[in-house]
Design a protein around this nucleic acid. Sequence first.
DNA 1: TGACGAAATTGATATAAATCAAGCCATGTT
DNA 2: AACATGGCTTGATTTATATCAATTTCGTCA
Lengths: 192, 192
Amino acid sequence: MTPVDIAHKFATRLGTTLDEQAAQRLASIFVRQEVSKGETLLAEGQVARNFLIVEQGLTRQYYYKNGIEVTEHFCCEWDVVYCTDSMLMREPTTLMIEALEDGVVHNVPFDEFRRLCDESPQIMKLYVRLLEDGLVESLRKTDAQRFESARERYETFVRQYPEAARRAPGKHIASYLLMTPESLSRVRAGLL
Amino acid sequence: MTPVDIAHKFATRLGTTLDEQAAQRLASIFVRQEVSKGETLLAEGQVARNFLIVEQGLTRQYYYKNGIEVTEHFCCEWDVVYCTDSMLMREPTTLMIEALEDGVVHNVPFDEFRRLCDESPQIMKLYVRLLEDGLVESLRKTDAQRFESARERYETFVRQYPEAARRAPGKHIASYLLMTPESLSRVRAGLL
DNA sequence: TGACGAAATTGATATAAATCAAGCCATGTT
DNA sequence: AACATGGCTTGATTTATATCAATTTCGTCA
């Protein structure tokens, strides 16, 4: 898949389109990266200078809360991985990115991307859609975590992210769902 | 306060600025509204066509989950009230807006606002900052609700929204903090 | 292929907060 | 001013899920 194809795919995924010139501009800043299972793509304390488009594989974002690892998000094929806080605020991240499978991602340097936004209304539209999506998604997630039992949270998760549910290790799914691995195990066994 | 002042205040609040022309354009679409305590500003099932800038007063956004009223957000002076889902998706809202005090708000018709975004890069920048802020805020909130005890959630809330903590009725604060009014009472009494 | 360490399961117990229940206090109304 | 209504407080009990502990299963690499 060529970088220009990636650019189009990215736009399509967000419900927008790019003409050839915009797609080429955008594609020109992509940095392809092969990643292997267990690899850290963004380490604690680094400032996130890119967001990522996943072409192949599965990633998770996680942070530490009182020494416990908490998974914030899973991303697989054609999802966009970004650490809002660090990238927008230019602060060292507390949210790490890790590859859970071998795969291929495309790094999009954020500063260059923002420059393209100012030059191309189509790319700005893309960015706005990305933010809008992130916001809607984030609010939906918060909602799911309010007033849902462990079992319901798991069922919602399986429906919404079937790929992650199949491919990610249980302990990460458990921490994503705010429950212990023991509880996840019981939910899966139908005991909860 | 004139509409143009409101526009500037709005921009400043979001860390951007508007030149006179942009401020006047923006101000021209504001619709001033006096609201009274208990008044519903957006009812269930309506499509949110505006977002609101609060000049004076206190509002809350809430929805029903299994018949229980859940407060999602409080906004007071110079906060911006918006129902992302409904406004962006143009769907009937499940998130209602209610005034908790007498006050004054300024309605900003979203379609007209988006049109101004396309015409004015300064206003587009304002919108992007609004979305970015909303995203960061939303993620912070999700985080606060993960792994914090009832007491910690209350303490965080008081620190972050001292005005709402002082001015809003306890039962709404309790539902915002995902606890029963009984628990909030015990937290406040230092019993939890 | 076998063996080791990590992950998942299963069971027993502990705990934070919900629920249920009753009474008290404030606020606003006739 | 008396009353009523909703909101807050306080106490007793229940419940979902965490925690602790002991195996079992699985995935990875020598």
